[in-house]
Amino acid sequence: MTIDWWTLGFQTVNVAVLVWLLQRFFWKPVSAMIQQRRSTVQGQLDDAAAKRKQATEALAGIAATRAGFAKEGEAIRTAAHAAASQDSTAQREQASKAAAVLEATARAAIETDRSNAEAAAARRASDLAVDIAKHLAARLDGAAVQAAFLDWLVKAIEAMPEAARRLAGAEGATLEAVSATQIAAADQARYSEAITRAFGSRPRITFRADPSLIAGLELRGANLAVSNSWRADLAQVLADLKR
């Protein structure tokens, strides 16, 4: 058994060359393609992962936006409720105030009308009473009525306090006796006598007629005013009615 060294050399070189050739034309291109595909797939997976991450973030953003919408809507509803409640309260208060003003105005108007009506009624009653008194006075005996009023005047003077009576009926003082009808001259002396006697002094007495008294005898002076007539009585009645 021998070895052909030429063949050994040829085969060594052949295999070495084959290693280089296959490295050049097979192993390198195919492994490069595998690596390229792997890189491409990895890149696509990375892109997909990035897009998935973006989509997840976008989804989270949308969810947050939706939550914000709901929250904002709730806030708007709450604000609207508060505003409506506030407006309603303000309107109620305003209406209440207006109603109070209207009520006060109406009450005042009613009171005014009632006062006016009462005043008018009092006036009509006074006028009616004056008319009635005039008619009654016309039917009564003038002398007897005058005597009665003289008697009441004397009692009023006597009822006065002593000091006031002396001051009013001092000597030289002038007192005016006013009657509804003119008192006859003959009666004037009698009247003067009765009045001076009531004063206990001798003031000067003058007489005057005033039909507005309806009936009666009043005495007026610088320090004296004795209202003794139906007009005064009616005025007193009217004042009582107005009160």
Partner: peptide, 27 residues
């Protein structure tokens, strides 16, 4: 020798086949 000739033939076939295979590699 015959072994060398066959080896050359194998080299030619493998190299030619490699060229043909890797000529149109696609992803």
């Amino acid at each position: 020798t015959a072994a060398v000739i066959v080896t050359w033939a194998i080299m030619a076939v493998l190299t030619l086949g490699s060229v043909l295979v890797t000529r149109r590699l696609t992803l």
